[in-house]
Every structure is written in structure tokens, then in C-alpha cells.
Design a protein around this nucleic acid. Structure first.
Lengths: 233, 233
DNA sequence: CATTCACTATGATATTTATCATAAAGTGAT
DNA sequence: ATCACTTTATGATAAATATCATAGTGAATG
């Protein structure tokens, strides 16, 4: 993890969260916000938080890709969700709990923005528009996680893998060819399957010419079939 | 569904949400709140919301027990969570979405409090302390759902059923003897198993003298074993 | 450059879970 | 009380998934 020293700390012109974090600021709130905002850079594989860490900041992903996960008693990880740019890395619990419930680590080189938790609480308390905007945004995030968890749960192994590949293709990369940001083991941790069955399922998709696999590169060749497997499997 | 006419609309002396809904009110907010708050009564089995209904209010459970669920394409239900007194029935999505993502129905006779969504948004916007309190409370709820979903997912069928029975006994009824508020089919919908396997698993627990079943009444006879099954199954 | 280690891959087998079939018991309505 | 319907129950079988074993591949490291 490296701290980023910025000459322009609030150079967030392209930030999708502008509407939440800036358009509702008043008076000296913006200045105070910029003064306290910190960015950290994390190489692929590095941790952003460890489960159990003290919650000091409210954080969101500026660029890259991270996974939120929990390490179970048997040492295996369980992935809760994968977050992309402008997704919150701290979930809502941040407001009530003192220690991170999940670990967060970088799947790709990532930049995370941290806002001091006390400062966020202060702004929420004193700026209603900001509160409302933040609440809407946080609600969407939590809802998405719950939604996705239900979607994956109801599918069989083929459906789970198809759903995951489609999610990457459609929501994250918006392209039918993309580089898998996760290992087969991580897909297993996310979908609740065994690694072997993820590999087997992807091999079957390959043999049936539904996808093409070239190292980390995946091309969805038969979107219709993959969709059918995702919806009926 | 019956509307309740109250002579004392804000007679919520025992409400656990007092701190969120009252202690942060200022000036005429309390009066306005009481004027607009509505309560509805729902008999066991009745719907509180149907998925797809327009979101008009922000709602929480005053008494009783409800389930939040989704009806899938194949007609089967998937239970997201079971909510008890003072749990929110509207999740966070309420702030962003226009239509209910889930159906809600009463497992026991229930009273639900509804606050006009526009009014809630207005208060959030103008009362920072209320915002912060509400956000904390909503965060806890969402977190609990996500948490629970992960807990269930990682268990095998025996572990799922054991976990569910322990949850009822410990969190909801705080007693090792209680009346099951749900059918075996609903346990299946909540845990993602088949009804037959829920029945079979409970029968096995009965045969092994871990639980006693007498109609709807369940007594956990061997808490230690059930705990072991929940934790290692 | 060799070595180690994680990842991908595949087959054989065991286990778990779902499906199908049947029946008894409970529930609500008339 | 009777009928229709749902829930609980159990067994037999099929299907899905996990486990175990083995090996090739690729990436990182000294």
C-alpha cells in the first residue's frame, strides 16, 4: 500500500460520486473534505483492509477492482462481492461497527479514496442533502449485493458460472472479450462451488464453443447459449 | 390488511426505534411525523407488499413477524430474510427505487408502521441527527442480511437447518422451546434446500434426540450437538 | 536456470442433494 | 362430518456436486 501525495487533492473531475460528494457541499465543507481525503494505491493482490481492522475511514474505489471477502474457520475464503470503480468499499456497517467485518484486497492495481469516518458523520449530521444522496447511493450498493447473492444462490453450478461470466462481460467490461480478473478458485469462492467444478464447467463451455479461453482472456462466443444457461440453470 | 385508527398515533412508548424516530426530532417534526404515520394490521399469511408495488412509504415492523421474499420465474419463492419487531420492512433501496423489489408477507399477525417516503426524505434532508441515526440503523439491517446469507451459504443441509433453528431459538424467541413460525417449505425457501430434505433433516434431528417436535412446537433438547452441527456442517 | 508453488486441467469415485412416488396427518371450508 | 387441499413424512432412485488423485502449465524466486 502506498500513500498518494497529490498536488490537487480533489482532482476528481471524472468521479461518478461527484453528485454525492461535491454537489451537496456547502461553504467550507469542500475545503475540509479535500484537506482530509486520502488516497491509497494497492498492487494486485495487496490488502486494502483486513477483517478485524479498526474502522477509521469511509472508503470507496477510485480505480481498479477489489474483492470483499471473509476467511472462514477452515481457512477458505468466501467472496461477498467484487467492487469496481466508484463502488463503496466500506459498506453501511461502517456507521455502526468499530471493526471491519470483511477483508478487502485488490484484484487489479487499485486506488482507494478514504474519508475520515468522523468527518463523514459530521457532514451527514450537518448537511441534509449530502445525507440523502449518500443514503441513496449506499442503499443501491447494499441492495445490489443482496440481489446478487440471491441470484447466485438459486442457480446450479453451470448457471452460477454463466451468470458470473455474463456479469463481468456486461456490467464490468462491457465487452464480450475480457481478461478474467480472478482465478478459478476465486470464482469458486464467489459462487460457493469447488474450484474443480468451476474449471470443469468452464472447460465444458469451451468444448461446446460457448466461450473461448486463452490464458486469462475470455471471449464469449455464444452469448445466447450462455444466457440460456444462466437463466435456466 | 386493515388500517388502524389510533387515538394516540404516536403511542410508541416501547418502540426500540424511539432513538431514531423521536429523539432526533426538532420543533414541528414530531407533530408532522405523527400526523402522517399510518399503521396497518396484517393477518398471518397476508401480504404487506407485493413485489412490483409502487414504493410509497418507508415501513418497519411494530409487532409480529414477516418474511421478505421473491417469487422466481418457476413460481417458487426465495426467502431473503425474516424480520421481527422493529426491523425495517423497507430496505435501503426504498430511497432510490420506485417499486418494491421484494414481496413481504406476515408469518404471524403483524402491525406495520408506514411513514410517507417523501416525508422521510424531507426529514433526512433537514435533520442531520435523524439522518445519522437512520443510516446507522439501516446499515445494521443490511449488514445482517448480507451476513446471514453468507452464513447459510457455507453450510451443508444439516448445518443450514441447525443454523436456522438456533437463530430462531436464540435471536427471536430467546427460549429453547418455541413454536415454528414457518412451514418446512418456508425453511427450504430460506435455506435454499428442497422441502423434503428439510423434513428429512428435522426428522433425523428428532431421531437423534437433538430436537423434540410436537406439531409446530420445537424443543431444542441437545443444544451442544445442534451447535456442533451448525458450526461444522 | 532450476526449483518451487500456485493454477489449470481431467478422470475416477464417493457423497450429498434433488427428484419422484406414495401415504398419513393436519387444516380449512362447506 | 366430509371433502379438498396442504403439510409432514419416508423410501427408492437419479442427478448433481464434492472429493481424491494425478499431471501439465505458467509464474515467481533465488
Amino acid at each position: 500500500m502506498e500513500r498518494i501525495d497529490m498536488n490537487n487533492p480533489c482532482g476528481c473531475e471524472k468521479c461518478e460520486l461527484r453528485s454525492v460528494f461535491f454537489e451537496s457541499f456547502r461553504g467550507d465543507e469542500l475545503e475540509s473534505f479535500c484537506r482530509n481525503k486520502q488516497e491509497t494505491f494497492h498492487h494486485r493482490g495487496d490488502f486494502v483492509f483486513h477483517a478485524g481492522d479498526e474502522v477509521k475511514s469511509f472508503s470507496y474505489l477510485k480505480s481498479g477492482l477489489v474483492k470483499l471477502f471473509k476467511t472462514m474457520a477452515n481457512g477458505k475464503d468466501q467472496i461477498i462481492t467484487i467492487a469496481g470503480p466508484f463502488d463503496f468499499v466500506s459498506l453501511l456497517g461502517t456507521f455502526t461497527i468499530s471493526h471491519q467485518p470483511y477483508s478487502v484486497s485488490a484484484l487489479e492495481d487499485s486506488v482507494v479514496c478514504h474519508i475520515d469516518i468522523q468527518q463523514i458523520k459530521h457532514i451527514v449530521k450537518h448537511n441534509g442533502l449530502f445525507s440523502l444522496n449518500l443514503m441513496e447511493r449506499l442503499g443501491t450498493t447494499s441492495n445490489k449485493i443482496i440481489q446478487e447473492s440471491m441470484e447466485i444462490r438459486k442457480r446450479n453450478t453451470h448457471g452460477k458460472v454463466a451468470y458470473f461470466l455474463l456479469k463481468l462481460s456486461r456490467d464490468l467490461y462491457m465487452n464480450q472479450t475480457f481478461n478474467l480478473p480472478v482465478s478459478r478458485r476465486e470464482i469458486a469462492e464467489y459462487t460457493g462451488m469447488t474450484t474443480e467444478n468451476v474449471i470443469r464447467t468452464m472447460s465444458e463451455f469451451r468444448k461446446e464453443k460457448i466461450i473461448r479461453i486463452n490464458g486469462r482472456e475470455i471471449e464469449i462466443m455464444d452469448m445466447e447459449s450462455l444466457d440460456r444457461i444462466s437463466n435456466f440453470g
